[in-house]
Simulated assay, not measured.
Amino acid sequence: MPANPTAAELLATVEASPRAVGVHDRAAWVGLFAENGSVEDPVGSRPHIGRAAIERFYDTFIAPNGIAFDVTNDVVCGMTVFRDLTIATTMGSNDPATGVTLHVPMHLRYDLAESDGVLKIRALRAHWELPGMIAQLMGSGVQGLVAGAKLGPQLIANQGVGGAIGFMRGMRSVGANGKQAAGRLLDAVGRSEIGNVRADLAPVPRLDWATDGAMSLEDFITRAKGLRWTKLIAAGRTVTATVETRDGRGIAELDFTDRGARIEAVRIFVPPS
């Protein structure tokens, strides 16, 4: 593997993940991760760090279910691949009584690293809304109720009580207020309204564009002129959005302060210009 892998090589590593999921190849999927790799799924829940924890994640959330990936766009930015997609999960796909299918909009971030000449996944962070998924499950009739009743014991059996509590931390997010603030800020950025941008930012925010690194607010707004957004997702203290920019289609990632009052970091992932 060259020191500077190409976009095609990064994408090939990422594509191996849904391929392994689709055929339920546990060893292949877990083997894609670096030795101390992590899975945070959904963002805001307790991360699964290291091989043993990632194996338990697979056994809990992948092995019992059928999972299909409908990817609409991939953004390769440095050593990160950000996927814009919807995942269709058929709960307990081997059991007709619980085979309800849930469609979950998602932004899926893969941070990659080279290890002994091989590209590995250093961190996988899945931005999706757990409260919406649970509402969809509970609204799916008898099949949804049966699948929901099985999920709790499944969680505890594989993750323990602490792991189940850690997963349910994903219920907490900046929610609708955070999505409104993120949309408002992105609108103001696209219109170059520097005063309105400052209104939602923390006093010393970090602003990053593609691989250019941190920049001033003035330079960031100049770069983002004309930006438009769709598909806001609130997970944990982060809101992600699909964006259209002069550099191409990408994904914005906005991090909020601990109390969710202001936005402390904005990163725009687009193909490098």
Rank of each mutant, 00 (worst) to 15 (best):
A3N: 05
T6E: 03
A7V: 04
L10N: 00
A12N: 11
T13G: 00
V14D: 04
E15A: 13
P18I: 06
V23I: 14
H24T: 04
R26E: 14
A28W: 00
V30L: 11
E35D: 12
G37C: 01
G37M: 04
E40V: 09
E40D: 04
E40S: 07
S45R: 00
S45G: 07
P47G: 03
G50T: 07
R51N: 02
I62N: 06
P64N: 05
N65D: 13
F69K: 01
N73M: 07
C77M: 07
G78L: 05
I87D: 00
I87G: 00
A88R: 09
T90E: 02
M91R: 10
M91N: 02
N94S: 14
N94H: 14
N94D: 12
T98Y: 03
H103Y: 13
H103F: 13
V104S: 10
M106D: 00
L112G: 00
A113L: 12
A113G: 08
E114P: 04
D116T: 08
G117T: 02
G117W: 01
L119D: 01
K120W: 00
A123P: 03
L124P: 01
W128Q: 06
G132E: 15
M133P: 07
M133D: 10
M133F: 13
M133K: 13
I134G: 08
I134A: 14
I134N: 10
A135M: 14
Q136L: 14
Q136C: 10
M138I: 14
V142K: 15
G144W: 09
L145I: 15
V146T: 10
P153H: 10
I156N: 04
Q159A: 12
G160D: 06
G160M: 09
V161Q: 12
G162R: 12
G162H: 11
A164D: 08
I165W: 10
G166I: 05
G166Q: 08
F167Q: 02
M168D: 05
M171W: 14
S173F: 04
N177Q: 12
A181D: 11
A181G: 08
A181T: 09
A181Q: 13
A181V: 09
A182H: 02
G183L: 06
G183R: 10
R184S: 15
L186F: 05
L186Y: 08
D187K: 14
D187Q: 11
V189N: 05
R191V: 06
I194S: 12
R198W: 09
R198V: 14
D200G: 04
P203M: 09
L207N: 12
W209M: 10
A210Y: 07
T211Q: 11
T211W: 13
D212V: 10
A214C: 12
L217C: 12
E218L: 13
D219F: 11
K225T: 15
G226A: 14
L227N: 06
T230A: 15
L232R: 02
A234V: 12
A235L: 02
A241C: 15
T242F: 08
T242V: 11
G248T: 08
L254I: 10
D255A: 15
F256R: 01
T257C: 08
R259V: 03
G260I: 06
G260P: 01
I263T: 09
E264F: 01
A265N: 11
R267L: 06
I268E: 00
P271H: 10
